[in-house]
Amino acid sequence: MEGIALGQIVHSRAGRDKGRYFIVVGIVDENYVLIADGDLRKIERPKKKKIKHLVFHDWIAKDIQEAFQLNKKIKDSDLRKALQSMGLL
């Protein structure tokens, strides 16, 4: 679970969503995280995904991470905008 941060960019390596990019919006335990992209997976219903089925990148959506730290409400458009700015959506 080390190296996993809220706002971190990941992509799925298994499942129906294979190859799609997401943002980590929650950490459940040492085996699972919650991911959302604001498009296929909304922030209200994030996907619970096993860590071993994800590829973690060093990229972090700074505005999303700051919103988590300040307990601000995050919208789906914020997630989409962060992924689009990196050319991932």
Rank of each mutant, 00 (worst) to 15 (best):
Y32G: 07
D37T: 00
G15S: 06
Q69I: 13
K48T: 14
A36P: 02
I4W: 09
R16S: 12
N71K: 14
E66L: 10
F56W: 03
D29A: 01
K81C: 05
A67P: 08
W59R: 12
K42E: 13
A61V: 03
L79K: 08
A5Y: 15
P46N: 02
H11N: 14
R41C: 04
V24Q: 05
R13G: 09
A5C: 12
K73Y: 12
K18M: 14
H57M: 09
G19N: 06
W59M: 10
H57S: 15
K81F: 05
I43M: 14
L6K: 09
V24T: 03
L70V: 07
L88I: 04
S77Q: 15
D17V: 04
R16C: 06
Y32W: 14
D29Q: 04
E66M: 11
R16M: 11
A5V: 13
H11M: 04
H57A: 08
S77Y: 15
R20V: 10
L34G: 01
I27Y: 01
F68R: 07
G26N: 02
I35H: 05
H11E: 08
R20F: 12
L40S: 11
H57F: 11
Q84Y: 08
K42Y: 08
F68M: 03
L6A: 06
L83V: 03
L89A: 11
I4H: 05
I51T: 07
K73N: 12
L79M: 04
W59E: 13
D37I: 02
I64D: 02
R80H: 08
Q65R: 15
S12H: 06
V28E: 12
K47N: 10
L70H: 15
E2W: 01
L79W: 00
I23C: 10
V24I: 14
I27W: 01
L88A: 05
D37W: 00
N71V: 08
Y21H: 11
I60N: 06
R16K: 15
P46A: 03
K75G: 05
A36E: 04
L54I: 03
K47W: 13
K42W: 06
R16W: 14
G19M: 09
V24M: 01
K42R: 11
A67W: 03
F56L: 11
K48E: 06
I23R: 01
V33M: 05
Y32S: 10
L70K: 15
G7L: 02
A82D: 00
L40D: 13
R45Y: 13
L34M: 10
D39L: 11
V10I: 13
A82S: 10
Q8A: 03
M86C: 07
Q84R: 14
S77G: 03
G15I: 04
D29F: 04
K48R: 15
L6E: 00
A82T: 07
V24R: 02
L88W: 00
D39Y: 12
K48L: 07
Q69L: 14
S77V: 14
L54W: 00
H53D: 12
G3W: 03
P46G: 03
Y32D: 11
V28T: 10
L34Q: 14
S85L: 10
G3Q: 01
S77T: 14
P46S: 08
S12I: 05
K75V: 06
N71T: 06
A82K: 02
A5K: 15
K73E: 11
L54A: 02
R13Y: 08
R80W: 06
D58K: 14
I35M: 06
K49V: 07
K62S: 11
E66D: 14
I27N: 02
A82R: 00
